[in-house]
């Protein structure tokens, strides 16, 4: 049953991705302006030659067909602005940094958020609880482009604990502040979710039973209460990855990291069609896949979920 559900969900990703690709392809092409709009207008002949070289003079539907054919072969086409680079090369360069950043942020958020939320729930309505929850409100409300520069200011410029910006391969110190900036709202959200659902679970009968049969409180929490209480956190992991991907655009800009997020922004500013498309395909499939994994994980953890 589970397997069939999993297969159906996996099969559902492909048409969704196809619709996303098709829609974004045509929307981007309808946009006024193009990659060859420079401050100084190009002579019409040169412009025509350039457009012919990139196949932009063909009918839109033919360009679309070619793009899809390229995609199947893993070829995202050439970048219009970063001459001599293919979009595939650009993304392959930046993606490892972005993935490392995002993954570390989600892991950190789980490692800190769940214990904080548990602590707040166990000490409900104590100063500890209020303290943690106030910080969580702040963490959710503050955007990364405010906290990022502030962290750089405090921990980079004044305390000199970590570098303010930049990146060196293999030197993790450069990733500390970006990862914390990216993880902060996720930590806050996970802490809130964990607290809320643990409070609910603790009121349930099976917890009372576990206590009644004389289990130490530690075991009641860790073995019985926490597992069902973490289900909402698991289903939040899908949106969380989308959030982290979005946040990495800002964090990479603030801290000058050579990730792939900045290509989406630069591509949009420069009307670099293929670069924007490439980013949408890669990040879109990434989000869809991670959402899928989170959903399947949820079904695996919660025996009450039925597949129809």
């Amino acid at each position: 049953m589970m397997l069939r559900y999993a297969l159906r969900r996996i099969a559902g990703v492909v048409p969704t991705l196809f619709i996303i690709i098709t829609l974004s392809f045509f929307v981007i092409r309808i946009a006024p302006g193009g990659p060859f709009d420079e401050e100084q207008a190009l002579p019409p002949e040169i412009r025509a030659n350039l457009e012919a070289a990139y196949g932009l003079d063909r009918p839109l539907i033919e360009q679309y067909g070619r793009y899809l054919a390229g995609l199947v072969r893993g070829d995202f086409g050439p970048s219009f602005k970063f001459k001599d680079f293919s979009v595939t090369e650009l993304i392959a360069q930046g993606l490892p940094v972005s993935l490392m950043l995002g993954l570390s942020a989600v892991l950190l958020a789980l490692l800190i958020g769940i214990p904080l939320g548990t602590l707040a729930a166990l000490r409900q309505n104590s100063p500890t609880d209020y303290g943690i929850m106030s910080v969580a409100v702040l963490g959710i409300a503050l955007p990364g482009f405010v906290t990022g520069p502030l962290f750089a200011l405090i921990f980079g410029l004044h305390l000199r604990w970590f570098p303010v910006a930049g990146y060196e391969d293999g030197n993790l110190r450069f990733l500390v502040l970006p990862v914390i900036t990216l993880a902060l709202p996720v930590i806050a959200y996970i802490a809130r979710l964990t607290r809320g659902s643990l409070l609910e679970v603790l009121r349930m009968h099976f917890v009372r039973t576990a206590r009644a049969k004389g289990l130490p409180e530690r075991q009641v929490i860790l073995r019985h209460a926490l597992r069902p209480a973490l289900l909402p956190v698991v289903s939040y992991l899908g949106p969380a990855t989308a959030f982290v991907i979005t946040g990495s655009l800002v964090v990479e800009t603030v801290f000058g990291l050579p990730g792939s997020g900045r290509y989406l922004v630069q591509g949009a500013i420069n009307r670099d069609y293929t670069l924007v498309m490439g980013m949408i395909v890669v990040y879109g499939s990434l989000t869809l896949t991670l959402n899928l994994i989170a959903d399947l994980l949820y079904g695996w953890l919660d025996p009450r979920v039925r597949y129809d």
């Binding site: 929307v27 989308a242 979005t246 989406l264 949009a268 009307r271 869809l288």
Partner: peptide, 15 residues
């Protein structure tokens, strides 16, 4: 299923 910001960035190229 698409991060909201993608739609926004695609749209920002439109105008």
């Amino acid at each position: 299923s698409l991060p909201y910001i993608f739609i926004v960035i695609i749209l920002s190229t439109l105008f």
